[in-house]
Nucleic acid binder design. Structure first.
Ligand code: FES
Ligand code: FES
Lengths: 143, 143
DNA sequence: AGATTAAAGGATCTTTTTATCCTTTTTTAA
DNA sequence: TTAAAAAAGGATAAAAAGATCCTTTAATCT
């Protein structure tokens, strides 16, 4: 479904959101341990999220990553768009160059329904809400 | 969503199904033209479908590919399983090693719903029915 | 100021996916 | 029975994704 970059990015940003909600700043080292991801690779992903202003990075000793108050309302759809682009929201299920209801592929009508459900789900799920679940120990980020 | 192999494979098998329903046998050359896919690569994909008995291949002059009567009821889910495996039906959306409702990732409950809808759609959509749409010129396989 | 810490950036390497090319096998028809 | 057609199979190449390593920049504390 999502690329490895995107999977790591989602796990990372959800973890940062949870820690931010507890007033903690977290380092790359901590993040990659807590979400069980390759550290150097995760660094690259976090750089993209930083450049796109979804997380804030702080250099130097006692540095790390946090999410600014207003960015806690960021939706998963936005994170995915930054890391994987929006093919998942707009692309044809059978790989036609573009999805177009006026000359649909055989799967179009069935596929669009699912794709829209996915999109709605991702556009209505915020970091804030997932961070809360995580704080309540209802969910996990590594296994 | 799907790999290139899988996209080509789905387009190809749907096209073969349509032609079979009109009592035509089709060659690789025709297939790759009609679905606009790289020919040699599509050959490999068709070999997999042939080995897995989803399509029948006939060598020699006047050879090509057809789908046997009873295989017209093949569901898309089966084609996808052969070409991409079943991660799409069973894998965790955030990339945890396995998806498990007893210790779910933050996305689990929301994700499983979509995943199941996708699965149900794919398990209930047969080659036969898509071939029919295609015959009625309701849909296309290249653009 | 100097040492240390942690993210950013650049370069490189590995693996997987996507794609092509060439030879072999099977079948058909002249 | 030979030539041609078409799929199968094997080898290789190119591109993309995934991953690592090392240097640079910025911040903090002594
Ligand atoms: S045209 Fe294929 S999904 Fe819309
Ligand atoms: S555990 Fe992540 S989707 Fe089920």
């Amino acid at each position: 479904m999502f690329s490895k970059s995107c999977e790591y990015g989602l796990r990372a940003i959800i973890f940062i959101a949870q820690q931010t909600s507890k007033n903690n700043k977290v380092s790359l080292n901590t993040i990659s341990k807590e979400i069980d991801s390759p550290q150097a690779f995760t660094a690259k992903v976090l750089q993209q999220l930083t450049k796109n202003n979804l997380v804030k990075s702080i250099k130097g000793p006692y540095g790390g990553f946090i999410i600014e108050e207003e960015k806690m309302n960021t939706k998963l759809s936005e994170v995915i768009r930054v890391l994987d682009g929006d093919a998942i929201y707009t692309g044809c299920g059978l790989g036609l160059k573009q999805c177009d209801a006026n000359s649909p592929c055989p799967l179009h009508h069935r596929f669009v329904e699912i794709r829209n459900d996915l999109r709605n789900m991702l556009e209505s799920t915020s970091l804030q809400i997932l961070a809360n679940d995580l704080n309540g120990d209802l969910t996990i980020l590594k296994r």
